[in-house]
Design a protein around this nucleic acid. Sequence first.
DNA 1: TATGAATGAGAGTTCATTCAT
DNA 2: AATGAATGAACTCTCATTCAT
Lengths: 233, 233, 233, 233
Amino acid sequence: MTASPDTPAPCRPMRKDAARNRELLIDAAREVFAQRGLEASLDDVAHRAGLGVGTAYRHFANKYELAGAILEHAVDEIVAHAEHALTVEDPWQALVGFLEASLEAQTVDRGLREVLLGVHDPERMQQVHDRLVGPISELIRRTQRSGAMRAEIESTDLGIVIMMLCTVSDIAGDDAPQLWRRYLPLLLAGLQADEPALPVPALSETRFRELTADHKRRMVRASAAAPARVRPR
Amino acid sequence: MTASPDTPAPCRPMRKDAARNRELLIDAAREVFAQRGLEASLDDVAHRAGLGVGTAYRHFANKYELAGAILEHAVDEIVAHAEHALTVEDPWQALVGFLEASLEAQTVDRGLREVLLGVHDPERMQQVHDRLVGPISELIRRTQRSGAMRAEIESTDLGIVIMMLCTVSDIAGDDAPQLWRRYLPLLLAGLQADEPALPVPALSETRFRELTADHKRRMVRASAAAPARVRPR
Amino acid sequence: MTASPDTPAPCRPMRKDAARNRELLIDAAREVFAQRGLEASLDDVAHRAGLGVGTAYRHFANKYELAGAILEHAVDEIVAHAEHALTVEDPWQALVGFLEASLEAQTVDRGLREVLLGVHDPERMQQVHDRLVGPISELIRRTQRSGAMRAEIESTDLGIVIMMLCTVSDIAGDDAPQLWRRYLPLLLAGLQADEPALPVPALSETRFRELTADHKRRMVRASAAAPARVRPR
Amino acid sequence: MTASPDTPAPCRPMRKDAARNRELLIDAAREVFAQRGLEASLDDVAHRAGLGVGTAYRHFANKYELAGAILEHAVDEIVAHAEHALTVEDPWQALVGFLEASLEAQTVDRGLREVLLGVHDPERMQQVHDRLVGPISELIRRTQRSGAMRAEIESTDLGIVIMMLCTVSDIAGDDAPQLWRRYLPLLLAGLQADEPALPVPALSETRFRELTADHKRRMVRASAAAPARVRPR
DNA sequence: TATGAATGAGAGTTCATTCAT
DNA sequence: AATGAATGAACTCTCATTCAT
């Protein structure tokens, strides 16, 4: 009775609207962060989305939740790349193609890099990596079975490799957006089979998850731990 | 009679205090930045040093000047490593030793990494690289002459390689401080001679300088270049 | 059904609050500036208005924008006085009445005087003078046609005269708020027709605008143009 | 006995040095204030004088004492002009000459104007005006006796007139440094004999002293009344 | 539910003034 | 007596977050 009787669908359209706004916000955030980094204010993001700040807070508890959502988008893409790579015949080509596709996305998006390099965001990270492990591990296993990759390589290694190349893009910025392509072959050489043993073991999945989550946690403004705000006035 | 006639009067005694404070500030900054990154406030740095904020501003025009001072320290070390490496007989061992020594320093110090990764600070960078180019180029030339390194590698490549490994340390944090050692061999494999040609040319020195300076400038205060915020009337 | 169909929807109801606060801020600023001059901090103004600093900054980009808003109020009054004066029969009486009315407003309000004397604020000034030129010029023309005023007087002269009398009020403060009345006749005598030629031409409108704007700009932040302070290393 | 016997001149040479520094500081302050107004920092003044800040504080208890000293210099000049004017034959020409000479000094010196317009400084003012009253009153009396000036004019009026013209220079700045000459005749016309009675009596000397002192006192930073500084650290 | 006004802690920076040398 | 390093309060301005409408 609260809703007037002529409202056609009581809650579904609401949801659709809400979902739409969520997307609008994430898109806006990617644009804004891509331009000005994670330092940009939520106000700016909300207005770029054509919404009020309050609406942003209805969807994301805080700025880092939003960063997390962006991350999920990015991970979706990487997972998609990995899954697509599994359909490529030549395992080594598949792997290279996967790395290239992943990097191409970061190359144009500073905000994405900052998120991926973990400049911010807390917990959510864990779930994220869980999604990556499967397809990436399979990709690696295939390559290793084909003899094109040294046996020691594990799924976390690919994550690290991607991040290292992100760093290159981050340094190069818009002025040399393809510079990472110079360093990819360097790393690929290292991934190949005939090299001597690596001196340090790879991180375990668990460890990797902990570390990256931790890395991000360190970055999150101390304000999270700040004393409860005094009631206004 | 106050000043003994044979005193060469090399410098003012007062300076001793000031110099001490300058060191205190740099040390405090390394500690604080190491813990909380460059986001930490100058207030915190000053107080960690047991000094007032104003004193920090007497020594450094702003936070990024301070970061610059830390950077210079770090660069001093890297240059020293490079120069020492030039005394090592085997060129390849010299190069590897140089990279290892450089990374070891960063490994324990997040603030240093952030500074080196260029998260901040503008101009001063140029002078810095000028100091690095000489010894590093020589190091590379020796290795290339010995046939142990592909000819395409240039001095900027080593800078990028160091930064990529810094990223690894940055992700790993204090929990896996040696993780970079896993990825160094990967990159070394890429540096060796018998690999196919790289798809992208190296940055020229000039370009590299511009980019890193630019990278930092972007970080310093995006707000300066931010679009004029719409102001309600 | 939520919004009644016959509502012309002239403006958002929320605005009422915001508009109220804007007025509160301007009123508070007039009070505070009246007591302590433009040196008072925006913090103080905001708190006098019973609002937070942030609110002040939502409405005014900075202190000088606020001063500008006060100025606009003041100019509104002066323009109103000038327009009213144009309805008075005797041109000379109209002019005198205009000056008296203008001064009476300033007399009680130091902040207003400081703003008008241009102790601060930049550009907006121009628009202001544009609004004054019309009615004041007409006032002058009428008086000159009646033979009561020397022909050389121009609209800028009245602006300067008002400012000179503001200075008197500024010096006299609350203790001799009517002192300006002693000096008005002195100046009026000078404005009358039978005196010898003035040794210096009046400022052109353009020139006047430039100067006052400039005057203010000089005040805003000398620091911006200040010679780079020598910084100890 | 306190001074060692071989000190040639126990205190006189000291004095000379101190007096020299005092002059250096006042000169530097006039230069600096002339360029950047009273907002300039004492540090800048001291360094312009080639001295340390500490030395400035040995001579002046605070910034406003220094402004007071500048004021005294300015008053010295005005008194000198007045005294010189008394030697001029024609009383009216003497008066005009006095005003012109007084204004010429202010015209080039923003700091002096700020001081004179009383933007700052406290008590000392009183003594100052005492010095002006004598010669200026004599100047006026002569002119009045000659029939060239209305009888109501008193010494304070000239002070106000000078300040009004200072305002003109303040507005005009360096761009129209002679603009005050346009308004001097206007005021002179008012000072002449045949005009109708002034509606408000002149300030008495005492009153004038009180007001100007008060005006300045209002401006002095509230910090003077601030709670005693907490002992450092 | 969406909005955007309000809030206030906090960051960077300056400068009058003090004090050790 | 002179110096300039040190101090910290004060100021302007920003922005994450809350809340009235």
